[in-house]
Design a protein around this nucleic acid. Structure first.
Length: 714
DNA sequence: CCCATAACTGTTTTT
DNA sequence: CAGTTATGGG
C-alpha cells in the first residue's frame, strides 16, 4: 500500500484508526475525501472486512459515484459492487425496498419529490377545508418535514399539543394518503427505516451485523433522524467514522443539526478525535480571507487553517453597475482566462440563488463560452418530464392518485375539473382508488359522454401497462409518448416552448438509455427510484465547460478560478427572520456559506456585486455585502475592467497547441471535433480566437479555438 | 362543461 | 419575469 505515504501524519492516523468511534474534524481543502477513500481501501486491503460489510454515506449521489471510482483504483478486491456507498436516502430506499412489507408497506413504493409533496398537501388542504391564505402551505410543508426529521409521528403531536391542531390534522391526512398511494416522501425514507428497526429488532440486528464499518461524510449536515439511524446501526461493532467541519454546516434549513458533530464525543464517549487543519487547496491569500470571514462567527469550534501554498494573487473585487454589467464582466473575464490557457471546467461561477443564473447564461452564450448549469431547474422536475414520469408511475402503481390526476387530462382529452372533482368525491366515498373507481364503477356513475372519455383513458393505461411488461425502460417511454399522443401534441403545437419540451423528452429517452447501460437492475421501478434520488444526466463524459451553480451545490467541489457573485446585502447574506436571535443564527449560516464559497477557489478568487439590481423587474439600489468588508483590504484589489493577462497562469499557457491550431486553420477547411464530429469552417474571427463551424450533424456552432481542439482533416 | 387569455402574486438553499 | 389562479367566451 504505497499510497499511504501520500498522507500527512493526521491523515494517516485517521486512516489507520479503523476500530472504534472516530471523529475527523476536517477543514476545507484538508483532504478529507482522500482520508475516507484511503480508509476504506485500507480496510479492504487489510482484509478487515469484505466490501459488503461497509456502509459509506456521502452527501450526494454524485459524490458517491466519485468515491467508488477512487476506491476502486486503490483496491484489488472482488465483489466490489457489494459495498454500499450512497446517500442516506438511497441507502434507506434500498433497505425499504427489501423490508417495507414488515411495517405494513408495499416493497414497490414510489418516492415522492418536493413537487409531489406540495401537490399532495394542497389536496389535504382542500379535503380538510383549510384556506391556504390562512395557513401557509409552505409553512406546513416545513413543519411536517421537521416532524419527520425529529421522528415525531402525528399522534405524538396531539400529545404535545404545542402545534396548531390544523397542522396535526394535515400531517395525519398527508401520511394516510401517502400510504394509500404507496409512496414515501424523502423524509419518510429515513423515518420508516428507523421505525422498521425499532419495531423489528431482528432486522436491525441483521444490518448491524452486516455493516461492520460505517463512514459518514459531511457529518455537520446530518439531521436528527440521520444521526439516530447511524447510531442504531453502529451499536454492534462501533466502528463508526464521521468526517465533517462545523464551519461548513449550511443545511440547517433542512433540519441539519451542527450539534451532531459537536456532541459526537458525548454520544460515543470513547471516541477518538483527529483534526485536519492543513489546507492543500488554496493560496495563502484566499485561505486568509476565508479565515478572516469565518472568525466573525461566535458559535464555532475555534480553529485556523494553514497552508504551505504560495501567496498567490490578490482577490479581485468588481463593483458592477447592475446585474447585466456583472454578468458581462464575468463572461469577458472568463473569455480572457480561457484564452490564457485555463480550462473552462476549472472555472466556477457561484451565486446565492438559482434565479441569478439566467444573467450569466445569457452573457456566456453571447460570448460563445461553453457552460453548464448545475442543479437549478432540475431536468426531471420539468413539467413535460414529470408528466411522462407520472404515466410511468401509473404503470408501476395504478393507485397513485396524484399521478393519475396529473395526467388524466394531459394531453387534453376533454376531462375537466368538475369531472375530476366528482371522481375524487366518489372514490373517497367508496374508499377505493380513483383508478379502481373508474374501472369498476365508471359506467354506473358517469353520463355516457363522460364515461366514454374516461373509459378511453383507462384502456389507454391498461394497454400501456400490458405492453410495458415485456419492454425495456427506453421502449416503455417511447410507448407512452406514442400512445398518449404526448409527443404528437407537442410537435404540432405552434408554441415555441413546446418544441424545446419535445427535445427534453428526447433527452429523457437518452437518460433512460444511460440508466440501462449503467445499472444492473434495469427495471422501471428502479429507474423511477434513481430519478427521485437525483440521477445525474450526463455525468459520464466530463465535459469541459464553465460551471454555474449555487454556493450550496458547490460544496465539496474546487476550481482554479471562482467568481463569487451577487455579494450584496439582502442577497448574500439573504436574511428573512424577524427576531434578532433567529437573525443572528441565520447570519452565521450565511457566513459559513460564504466561507464555503471562498474556500472552493484554488488559485484565483473574484468577487462581484451590483450597485443596482432588478428585483421582480423593478430596479433597486443595493449595498455591498458585509462579508466583503470582513476581508481585510490588504488582500483585495478593486478592478473596473474585465480580467486580462493573469500572471500566475501564463506559465500554464498551452501555447504550442493554441498556436498550431491558430496558424493552420482557414476558412473552408474541413475539421474534426471530439463531440460534434466533422464540420466545415465558415468564418474566423479577427484575432483568430473564435471560429464558426458548420457541422454535419449539429449545424452551425461558434467555438473558441483555445479549447475546441479542432483537427484539420481536409 | 372545457379552454384560452388576463390579472396577480410572491423569491433561498436540496436529498 | 414566470408560474399559477380568476374570468369570460365557445
Amino acid at each position: 500500500m504505497e499510497w499511504l505515504k501520500e498522507l500527512n501524519q493526521q491523515q494517516l492516523e485517521a486512516v489507520l484508526s479503523t476500530e472504534g468511534p472516530l471523529l475527523v474534524l476536517a477543514g476545507a481543502g484538508s483532504g478529507k475525501t482522500r482520508v475516507i477513500t484511503y480508509r476504506i481501501a485500507y480496510i479492504l486491503n487489510m482484509g478487515l472486512a469484505k466490501p459488503s460489510n461497509i456502509l459509506a454515506i456521502t452527501f450526494t449521489n454524485k459524490a458517491a459515484d466519485e468515491m467508488k471510482e477512487r476506491i476502486k483504483r486503490l483496491v484489488s478486491v472482488e465483489s466490489f459492487s457489494e459495498m454500499w456507498v450512497s446517500t442516506f436516502h438511497s441507502a434507506c430506499a434500498r433497505i425499504l425496498r427489501m423490508e417495507a412489507h414488515n411495517i405494513g408497506f408495499s416493497n414497490n413504493f414510489i418516492i415522492f419529490d418536493m413537487q409531489d409533496r406540495h401537490q399532495l398537501l394542497k389536496e389535504c388542504f382542500e379535503r380538510l377545508n383549510i384556506d391556504e391564505d390562512r395557513l401557509e402551505l409552505r409553512y406546513v410543508s416545513r413543519q411536517i418535514s421537521n416532524f419527520k426529521n425529529m421522528l415525531i409521528s402525528p399522534s405524538d403531536i396531539y400529545k404535545e399539543g404545542k402545534t396548531d391542531p390544523r397542522v396535526a390534522e394535515i400531517y395525519k391526512l398527508y401520511n394516510k394518503l401517502l400510504k394509500e398511494y404507496n409512496a414515501f416522501d424523502f423524509d419518510d425514507l429515513l423515518y420508516y427505516t428507523i421505525m422498521l428497526f425499532r419495531t423489528n429488532p431482528d432486522i436491525l440486528e441483521k444490518y448491524q451485523q452486516k455493516f461492520r464499518y460505517i463512514l459518514v461524510d459531511e457529518y455537520q449536515d446530518t439531521n436528527y433522524a440521520q444521526f439516530y439511524l447511524i447510531y442504531l446501526l453502529a451499536q454492534k461493532h462501533r466502528n463508526i467514522c464521521v468526517v465533517g467541519d462545523d464551519d461548513q454546516s449550511i443545511y440547517s434549513f433542512r433540519g441539519a443539526n451542527v450539534r451532531n458533530i459537536l456532541e459526537f464525543e458525548k454520544v460515543f464517549n470513547d471516541a477518538k478525535v483527529i483534526k485536519l487543519e492543513k489546507n492543500y487547496r488554496s493560496t495563502k491569500t484566499i485561505l486568509s480571507a476565508a479565515n478572516e470571514v469565518i472568525k466573525n462567527n461566535i458559535h464555532r469550534k475555534p480553529k485556523r487553517l494553514w497552508t504551505e501554498n504560495s501567496e498567490g494573487e490578490k482577490i479581485y473585487l468588481y463593483p458592477a453597475f447592475d446585474e447585466v454589467d456583472e454578468a458581462n464582466f464575468v463572461s469577458m473575464s472568463i473569455k480572457n482566462l480561457i484564452q490564457s490557457g485555463i480550462k473552462p471546467s476549472e472555472i466556477g461561477v457561484l451565486y446565492r440563488t438559482n434565479a441569478q443564473s439566467l444573467n450569466f447564461e445569457n452573457a456566456l452564450s453571447a460570448h460563445a463560452i461553453p457552460y453548464k448549469v448545475v442543479g437549478s431547474l432540475r431536468f426531471f422536475e420539468r413539467k413535460e418530464v414529470k408528466d411522462i414520469l407520472a404515466y410511468l408511475r401509473l404503470i408501476v402503481n395504478p393507485h397513485d392518485n396524484l399521478s393519475l390526476f396529473r395526467v388524466i387530462n394531459v394531453p387534453k382529452r376533454g376531462i375537466g375539473p368538475s369531472t375530476v372533482e366528482k371522481i375524487k368525491v366518489l372514490s373517497d366515498e367508496y374508499g377505493i382508488s380513483a383508478y379502481s373507481l373508474l374501472k369498476e364503477r365508471g359506467v354506473l356513475e358517469f353520463d355516457r359522454r363522460t364515461y366514454f372519455k374516461l373509459n378511453e383513458f383507462v384502456s389507454l393505461l391498461e394497454d400501456i401497462r400490458t405492453e410495458a411488461e415485456t419492454k425495456s425502460v427506453v421502449e416503455v417511454i417511447k410507448l407512452v409518448l406514442d400512445k398518449t399522443k404526448y409527443m404528437e401534441t407537442l410537435l404540432s403545437s405552434k408554441n415555441e416552448e413546446d418544441f424545446q419540451r419535445a427535445k427534453n423528452l428526447e433527452q429523457l429517452i437518452s437518460a433512460a438509455a444511460m440508466f440501462e447501460e449503467e445499472n444492473e437492475d434495469k427495471s422501471l421501478q428502479n429507474f423511477l427510484n434513481s430519478i427521485a434520488l437525483s440521477f445525474e444526466e450526463d455525468d459520464a463524459q466530463k465535459e469541459d465547460k464553465v460551471m454555474l451553480m449555487t454556493v450550496h451545490a458547490a460544496k465539496g467541489l474546487e476550481f482554479d478560478v471562482v467568481f463569487l457573485t451577487g455579494l450584496e446585502e439582502g442577497l448574500f447574506p439573504l436574511l428573512r427572520a424577524e427576531d434578532t436571535i433567529e437573525m443572528e443564527e441565520e447570519l452565521e449560516e450565511e457566513r459559513r456559506l460564504c466561507y464555503v464559497a471562498i474556500t472552493r477557489a484554488k488559485k484565483f478568487l473574484v468577487l462581484t456585486y451590483a450597485n443596482n439590481r432588478r428585483v421582480f423587474g423593478r430596479f433597486s439600489s443595493r449595498q455591498r455585502s458585509c462579508f466583503v468588508d470582513e476581508i481585510p483590504a490588504k488582500y483585495i484589489q478593486q478592478i473596473y475592467t474585465p480580467l486580462r493577462n493573469v500572471n500566475s497562469f501564463d506559465t500554464q499557457l498551452n501555447k504550442s497547441q493554441q498556436n498550431s491550431t491558430k496558424t493552420t486553420l482557414a476558412v473552408g477547411d474541413i475539421i474534426q471535433h471530439n463531440k460534434f464530429g466533422i464540420g466545415k469552417i465558415l468564418s474566423l474571427s479577427e484575432d483568430l480566437n473564435e471560429v464558426l463551424v458548420d457541422f454535419e450533424k449539429y449545424g452551425q456552432k461558434r467555438l473558441l479555438l483555445s479549447y475546441a481542439n479542432l483537427k484539420k482533416i481536409g
